[in-house]
């Protein structure tokens, strides 16, 4: 673990970005290795709609 922490400090972070694309783009422009996962909360996070979808989908 200690050696992994040292790697992080010496080699820089490798980032997996989930959701907000602007974070991915900001990281990429700073030269950070980053992978973007396109994700949004189901049904915009609306609980009633999620319950409805659970019954229909």
């Amino acid at each position: 673990m200690k050696s992994n922490m040292n790697d992080l400090l010496s080699e820089g972070p490798k980032v997996i970005n989930i959701g907000l694309r602007s974070f991915y783009e900001a990281s990429e422009t700073q030269g950070i290795k980053v992978v973007h996962i396109d994700w949004k909360p189901p049904a915009q996070g609306d609980i009633e709609t999620i319950k409805l979808l659970d019954r229909l989908l």
């Binding site: 949004k40 049904a43 979808l53 989908l57």
Partner: peptide, 9 residues
């Protein structure tokens, strides 16, 4: 419409 709403796509 179910998929559009679920995925917000």
């Amino acid at each position: 419409i179910r998929k559009v709403v679920e995925l917000d796509e």
